[in-house]
Nucleic acid binder design. Sequence first.
DNA 1: GGTACTGAATACCCGTGGGTATGCAACTAT
DNA 2: ATAGTTGCATACCCACGGGTATTCAGTACC
Lengths: 200, 200
Amino acid sequence: MPRLPRDEVRRRLLAAAERVFAERGYADSKLEDIARTAGFTKGAVYSNFGSKQELFGAILSERSEAELADVMAGLDAGADVAALIEQAARTVAQRIIDDTERGRLGLEIAARAIRDEETGAVVAPMRRAQRASAGRAVREVTERAGITPPVDPELAGTILHCLTNGLAMEHLVDREGVDADTAERALRAVLGWLTEGVRK
Amino acid sequence: MPRLPRDEVRRRLLAAAERVFAERGYADSKLEDIARTAGFTKGAVYSNFGSKQELFGAILSERSEAELADVMAGLDAGADVAALIEQAARTVAQRIIDDTERGRLGLEIAARAIRDEETGAVVAPMRRAQRASAGRAVREVTERAGITPPVDPELAGTILHCLTNGLAMEHLVDREGVDADTAERALRAVLGWLTEGVRK
DNA sequence: GGTACTGAATACCCGTGGGTATGCAACTAT
DNA sequence: ATAGTTGCATACCCACGGGTATTCAGTACC
């Protein structure tokens, strides 16, 4: 039986770890289970990663900051502001609701980042970049439409980012309480507010 | 040496557990440490609580849903809308920033609620009540001022609640990135928007 | 096709901490 | 007083899982 290339083994282990960590949380994720999920044994894990923590850390690097970027990519560049908001709200809400795994892992990462210095050092700049990215998006859209947003774009980015994460967390905790419709309406309302400026 | 009343022992253990769980997270909190922090030994824990999980669960019941209530209580009932917003934004932002322990524990609870059914069953209704409470606050303020909010109060409650939690989480992950001033400006902006309706 | 090397599998070690059984001192009742 | 009860302390057990030493199969290179 021909051996898989090392990179492929690594990839599979990371994918498995991502799922298992999301599902059970860091503490309850056993390296044995992660390995078996990927189709290997614990030996493969220690051959590719130095420790459990390192495996967890490696996942961070994989989670691209492209998160927002590919939401933006899904939008029609030509559409008018109202249509953009409609699309963005729907897309982000959808993500919150059906990509539960992402949300769970995100929460797990945040929870760990608070106590583990190393994790925090990676996560904090990542989050900052995401907020800035959201801020730029607001700036671009409002500038293009020639309107003045009610708050400066940077703050708007923070508001959007935190609201999105807050909604995601709330949905994870209370599935029915915060459903797709609620999330979408909330986002639409806030996006609408942020882009309903006085005409310049 | 006179013995402390049972209730006092329980109280001290809960207080200690709250601190330790917040500080180290559920998994890394040792019952031995919690007990010693309270000035007792593990025996006291098992005399008052059935298990580690039960101790953790007991903390939930103690965390009153009064959270928002006492923010509201701190506001001048007579003040006008603008002043109310100013006060509320400041108070909530302060809480987010300097009551780090509360935030940490809240995140820990949320993280656990996702996977532990029992915890989830307690937390979900609690959160629902908090959102509803925020919604009522918006309704009262706007009605009293005779203005129509841009979104219905219930949704406004959800937005405020999620934004607040999102800001708290963000601050925990990136202390300097989201500081008191940022949180306050974000809250003031959103509160301002929610209460700047058309005059009826 | 032999030799050296790489990397995953296997088996084992051992610290750790939740849980429990027993001891023993402080309150209660009669 | 004193027997019974309550409730925390003490000592112990043991499952569990991260980490490691060793083995052994597949691969590369000459």
